[in-house]
Structure formats: structure tokens, C-alpha cells
Design a protein around this nucleic acid. Sequence first.
DNA 1: TTCTCAAATGTTACTTTATAACAAGCAACT
DNA 2: AGTTGCTTGTTATAAAGTAACATTTGAGAA
Lengths: 144, 144
Amino acid sequence: MEIACFIEAADRHCQQQGVKLTALRRQVLELVLGYPGVVKAYQVLADLQKQRGIAAPPTVYRALDFLVAAGLLHKVDALNGYIVCHHVGCNHEGLILVCGDCGRVEELDATPVLDVLRQQAGGAGFAISQQNLMLTGRCKECAV
Amino acid sequence: MEIACFIEAADRHCQQQGVKLTALRRQVLELVLGYPGVVKAYQVLADLQKQRGIAAPPTVYRALDFLVAAGLLHKVDALNGYIVCHHVGCNHEGLILVCGDCGRVEELDATPVLDVLRQQAGGAGFAISQQNLMLTGRCKECAV
DNA sequence: TTCTCAAATGTTACTTTATAACAAGCAACT
DNA sequence: AGTTGCTTGTTATAAAGTAACATTTGAGAA
Ligand SMILES: [Zn+2]
Ligand SMILES: [Zn+2]
Ligand SMILES: [Zn+2]
Ligand SMILES: [Zn+2]
């Protein structure tokens, strides 16, 4: 199963980083993996409540924060949501496209465009750090 | 004064667009202009309450939405905030650079890089919507 | 002028999103 | 066992954003 496989990889990834993928964090990661695209914190919270009977917002937010810091999820600010990173360990910068309609997500390589950006920003005296580019739009299926 | 000058330009800009920069909208724009960088809706709301005694969230959000739609402000999703667009009339999308150290904000024209992005995303079946790019980095003054 | 209509603003109430602060649990080492 | 530091539980509240309906206002039509 794809999810189990991802979890396994995530586990290794965390061990390498010297951080712990605890049962709770794993459970939250599994819940996020259960969605095809962007998930909101309170959706995860609701799911968690179904599975364990009770859970409060900080429980979910802490787990999500951890997973983002560990590079297993990305936060999508424009949608107040989270997506799974399918390039764990690639160590490249991502170009993340999120469909604002259906939440479908695609992650491409941002290297070429970040080269352009670094040059432009450099001209203004700004040094751009390592990061992902997140863009919203509309996917093939949701096209008007 | 710089603010008065900007307001004047904003006024002309709105007339050209066939939309109205009403007293309220102008007042909100002035309040945002009073800040050096990113401003939050509830800061503006508090300021507005000081000036007119009473105001509710929708009053501020509607004005801010208008100003964003008119191209006078940009929304900064990652910070739940707004910044003044210093390229009014350019009709561009913003490349917003935020210094992770000092919070300074710089805005460039994102059109060229978004052209590249649209092409790359188009290849993956994604239509990228009108938006700003926000990137973090380090500004000239904070350079190591 | 007076009417009418649409846009703008006011008002109330609420939803969604996120965090602070402190208590309790748990695992690893001494 | 005792200590320490990280993790999780719990309560309460803050911050951000919107729905729905009432009221005002101002420009054009009658
Ligand atoms: Zn990724
Ligand atoms: Zn879609
Ligand atoms: Zn701009
Ligand atoms: Zn700086």
C-alpha cells in the first residue's frame, strides 16, 4: 500500500534527522495522506476525534507543525491547509501547484524558475533562501 | 507629503478603472499607508475605531478587499496581512520579498517570472491564477 | 423635483483558524 | 528511584474572516 510505504520512508527520514515520528504524529500523517490534496487542520482534528474519541486543536497543530518542520508536509498559506510532500529526501526546491477548486496538488522542480528569481531579487539586494514556491490555480479537471 | 501624493494617484487610478475610492476606502488606505510594512486587518480596524468611534470587521474587510481588487494593496497570505502596492498602475503581479531578519518588505514586478511559471505549470495542466509571489530571504542591510 | 435602484456601509451574530498557559505523562539516563 | 527534557492532554481564549440582513446614499430616470 502506498500510504504504508510513505510512512516507512518518513520514519527513516525522521531517524536520519534525529527527530521522532511518534504514534500521534504518524497517525496525523496517515490522516493527511488519506486525502488526495489539501487538508485543513480542523478536518484532521475531526478525523482524529473519530479515531480516538477526543482531541483538541493544539494536538493537531503541534503534530502538523512537526511534520512541516520535518519536511514531510508543506503548509499552503493561501488556503490555510497542508499537503504531503512527495519529494521527501530529494532535497530540491519544489514548485507546488494547488488547485483552488478541488485541492488537487502537483509538485514540480522549482530550480529553473528560482534561478530567475534569485537573479532578480539579487538585483534588489535580496538573497533568497532555500524554499518552495506555492502557487494556486486551477487544474485540468477543474478547468472552466 | 508622500501619503497625500499616493492617495492622489490612487484616486486617479480608481477613476480610470471606473470604481469609486470612497471616503471610507480612502481612510483605510491612509491607515495602511501609515505603516512601514505589513499591516493586519484588525490593526486597521483598531485604528479605524480610534478615528470614528465604532467600526466592525466587515467594514474593514470590505474596504481592504476593494483596495486589493483595485490593485492598491496586496494581500500577504503567509502573514495574514496587507501591504501597499508601490507599483500602482503597472497592473502587475507582485514579487514580494520579506526579510526574515528585520521584516523589511520589498516589492518587485513578478510578471517575467510568472510568465515562466505559467508555462511550466501549463505543461502540467495547471492554469495559474492572478497572484503574488511571496518569498523570504535576507535584505541588503541584514546581509551576513 | 421626486422616485427608484444599485452600490456602499452599518450591524449583529457567527464560523473558522490558531495559540497561550499550565498539567500530566513518558522515556532515557544517573 | 530520581531527574530531566520532550511529548501530549486540557482548558480557555485570541485572531482572522464571513453570512445575512438593515440602512444609507447618491446618480440617473421619470
Ligand atoms: Zn515537497
Ligand atoms: Zn482541480
Ligand atoms: Zn504591486
Ligand atoms: Zn533585513
